[in-house]
Nucleic acid binder design. Structure first.
Lengths: 229, 229
DNA sequence: CTCTGTGAAGCTTTTCACAGCT
DNA sequence: AGCTGTGAAAAGCTTCACAGAG
């Protein structure tokens, strides 16, 4: 898991945006799209921040890493800012992804409506189970794992999604890396080891619920704050 | 979105574990389970940290917020530590959750194998579409939205999962809150507003891929680092 | 000697508050 | 006057390095 960092390079365009900011830029993009749909042409940091669910100062600081795209005394041009963020995020092109594992989760991801409007295209599906190979899911024919290399090369895919059970995750990651994938989104409840230069992000569905359960427990158990004599 | 914080209370048991630590405790729990399955009875912070994919110092610091459960010169008793973390996380009980929206994602979540072993039980499914109401998914009959209050009260559910399209998210959140839910996991690509005292966590599938795409873009574009004359 | 538990240092992220542009 | 862009302060998180228990 390599997360490239270079806090602030002093060359032409400002480079090296903090991770926390990168994670929020897609949120701003969505907020700007919502405003654009409502016909809003221009907005102040406060309005955009509200749409995005962040504090206005944080929003301005985040945007300042990209450049000075606002107008003092006025605010931001919705369309212009939208384009600038999209460009910075690499969203002026579409990104093809391959999903490995077409069980319930993999199938749900293949059908997910939210991807296409965010520059993500599910380009290929792969599964190890011969009974699933050849079936069609969301208009895509499922390929066998051993064709991964060919698919990735032919379609120039650089992002892979692991949607298999935890036990298979490491082997799938190895195959993805071998096939030339350099970014992996891992939904399997397992750590995967990858060589330098390959990024991995992990989404763990149980962990999110476990964190909520923790807070839930504290809400109910800490209510009677009795001081003992 | 209320995230309760109280950095360090000086009462009996150490209270107020940092958010970052809470988010990692389930990872340690999984690592400990893996070690227990391999028959390992005791382990040092280094081994456990490796299993969990973190730095040993961070692991020890995290555990120190719970208490002193290790033995100097030796390490941690796997079973004992597992129990202590589980207790802290509220995992000595099972948590019932209700999933709203049984489209592809909701169905996948209902069938997700990883929940049961982590103390999460999908207790009810709800959908607004009358064609889905009454169908059975993963052995659970889908109920109509207007029964949410009754279901939540009867089964004493405190955690709700939103797996609807973005447009429906706010209304679903309102209904969940009205029904008495105090923790929400939101998979819909939209912000939801909730009153104080209700926790919301958000998982956004596109955003994770957009972040990977950003790093991917920089990998390829910054390769030829040519200095101009 | 080994490995934990933890102050202290270092780094990142957030928030404040205001100078400066329009 | 209004709102951005940003240094500087504050808060939070990670890592170091070592005292101290076994």
């Amino acid at each position: 898991m390599t997360i490239l960092r270079s806090p602030r390079l002093a060359d032409g365009t400002a480079r090296g945006i903090p991770d926390a900011t990168v994670a929020r830029l897609p949120v701003y993009l969505r907020a700007l799209n919502a405003l654009a749909e409502q016909g809003v042409l221009s907005c102040a940091s406060g309005e955009l921040a509200e749409q995005a669910g962040v504090n206005p100062a944080k929003l301005r600081k985040d945007l300042s890493y990209l450049g000075s795209y606002g107008t003092r005394g006025v605010g931001y041009d919705v369309e212009y800012l939208r384009y600038q963020i999209a460009r910075e995020m690499g969203q002026t092109q579409d990104w093809d992804v391959v999903i490995v594992g077409v069980g319930n989760l993999g199938s749900a991801l293949s059908a997910y409506q939210g991807f296409s409007t965010r520059g993500i295209r599910v380009a290929a599906l792969v599964d190890a189970d011969p009974r699933r190979v050849g079936t069609t899911i969301s208009d895509i024919v499922v390929s066998p794992v051993d064709q991964l290399g060919a698919i990735v090369a032919e379609r120039r895919i650089s992002i892979g999604v692991i949607a298999t059970p935890g036990e298979a995750a490491q082997e799938v990651a190895d195959r993805l890396v071998e096939a030339g994938i350099t970014s992996i989104l891992n939904f399997a409840p397992a750590l995967v080891q990858v060589p330098d230069g390959v990024d991995v992000r992990k989404v763990d569905l149980s962990i999110e619920l476990q964190i909520l359960a923790y807070h839930e427990q504290r809400k109910t158990s800490s209510e009677p704050k009795v001081i003992e004599a």
